[in-house]
């Protein structure tokens, strides 16, 4: 069913005239390590996003470095890859300003191991920008798990950690960290076959990963919207087993 939906979506995912304006731009950070293990993945995510939600994604992935002026034109930034992440002091200051200015960062550990170089360095680096903040494990009723799909857990290629983590800056959940290679669970070859198997949950876990990816993007665009009082009775009713 998912493959069918994505085929249908591929026929409508295209750019209109002008710049991105208010459309969702998927921006990915180029850093010194293996920063781009899934270069062909964004169009698939974009198509699924457009097909299932009212979000209008900008078709092109925007890759940029911390020094790139386009960083501050990209409210949503993905940092993924393998290896230790490090930045100069000037770059760290730019990232700090980016987050304070309203930007959101999604860290995805494509090594999918708890103590991998990426898993050790990237969260610590983001934490060092805001010493007063701490990483918090997001419970299953966090708004990230309710921003579009009702989810009960985290997805990814390999479940290295059972929860998403969040870094709250100025009372806003500004950085999300997934230790499970969420992007890897979505990656496909040119024929539409999954590149990796999902462990331990198989295809169901992959499906949940697609939904989590959509939720992360919707969370970046709607913030705490689903915590508003008007949603609560509906969500509580639906959340009952």
């Amino acid at each position: 069913m998912l493959a069918g939906l994505m085929f249908f979506a591929s026929t409508v995912f295209s750019a209109e005239g002008g710049g991105p304006e208010n459309r969702f731009v998927y921006a990915q950070l180029r850093w010194q390590g293996t920063w781009d293990p899934y270069p062909a993945l964004w169009p698939q995510i974009g198509r699924y996003l457009q097909q299932t939600t009212s979000v209008v994604p900008w078709p092109e992935r925007r890759t940029l470095t911390v020094d790139d002026p386009a960083l501050f034109e990209s409210p949503f930034l993905v940092i993924l890859g393998q290896g230790a992440v490090s930045f100069s002091e000037a770059e760290k200051e730019r990232l700090r300003r980016y987050i304070i200015g309203g930007g959101m960062i999604f860290l995805d550990n494509t090594e999918a191991e708890r103590n991998s170089p990426f898993g050790r360095s990237a969260p610590a680096l983001l934490k060092s920008l805001f010493p007063e903040s701490t990483w918090e494990a997001l419970p299953s009723d966090n708004v990230v798990f309710r921003s579009f799909f009702l989810l009960r857990g985290v997805g990814g290629r390999r479940i290295a950690e059972p929860q998403l983590k969040g870094l709250r800056v100025q009372d806003r959940l500004a950085v999300l960290y997934c230790a499970n290679d969420l992007h890897g669970a979505l990656a496909r070859d040119h024929l539409g076959n999954a590149l990796f198997s999902c462990e331990p949950g198989g295809e169901n876990q992959r499906y949940e990963s697609w939904k989590l990816m959509v939720n992360v993007i919707l969370f970046s665009l709607t913030g705490t919207y689903k915590t508003d009082a008007i949603h609560q009775p509906f969500l509580e009713r639906k959340a009952q087993p």
């Binding site: 579009f148 009702l150 509906f234």
Partner: peptide, 22 residues
């Protein structure tokens, strides 16, 4: 606040109880 998360023409492909939509 209300934001339209799904237009009438969007196809989600999941049961309604898996959607956090009202």
């Amino acid at each position: 606040s209300f934001v339209i998360l799904r237009d009438p023409e969007d196809a989600v492909g999941v049961p309604d109880n898996q959607l956090a939509l009202i």
